[in-house]
Amino acid sequence: MATIDTHQPALGKDDKSVPLWKRYHHGHHWRTADDEFDAAKIGIWLFLSTEILLFSGMFCAYTLFRLMYPEAIAAGSSYLDWRWGGLNTVVLLISSFTMANAIRCVQLDKQSWARINLIITWLCAALFLAIKLTFEYGPKWAQGKRPGVLFNYPFASETHEPIWWGIYYVSTGIHATHVIGGMALIALLIYRQAKGSYGPSHYTLMEGVGLYWHIVDLVWIFLFPLLYLVH
């Protein structure tokens, strides 16, 4: 498999004709750019492990409430339309692909392709949120399908449905918050990439944001069947 040489000396620090990524030099407390990159990556993975644990709290609540009130979870799940959930899954999968592809393009110094991929990633994130708000949160909230004490849906059939809506809003809500955070980070990448900050020898931030974005996708891969399909 192809690899790239990240061991390039930093060129003229103030030479404007040299792209930013070529002028970048790793921190003086690192032996090599590789050391810096690997340390950053371990840091990101540690952060991602806390993210997995955060989401696992919701998966834990889902599992246990499902064991206790299977009929309420089944009734609640039947209110959701798998077509919106499925469409959002496809949207997120595509954005994950374009994110991975953007990193690959930067590694090969194909800057305009990297930009296109990053922009598609951001647009997919926006589309995901738009679908979620317009077709799912909005109508459901208006009908009174709300979590816990806010619940006000008169046509419910199971006593514990408010708990289902609690699980639904908290898990998809925290996930959507991560999508918003991801959009901000990807926007930052688009801006910095346009300035020429990333190239074959330096793309640490892109790698980190990419990993974060894949985790957001990963969580949705599990949320989709649990909320929309399993009945």
């Binding site: 498999m1 192809a2 690899t3 790239i4 040489d5 990240t6 061991h7 090599t32 590789d34 990159f37 999968l93 595509i94 994950s96 692909f97 991975a100 592809n101 690959r104 590694q107 090969l108």
Partner: peptide
């Protein structure tokens, strides 16, 4: 020496998608 970073071919990425 130093190890290089892997570039995953686009064919693999597309296949995974």
């Amino acid at each position: 020496g130093h190890h290089g970073h892997v570039i995953v071919p686009w064919q693999i990425l597309l296949g995974v998608l």
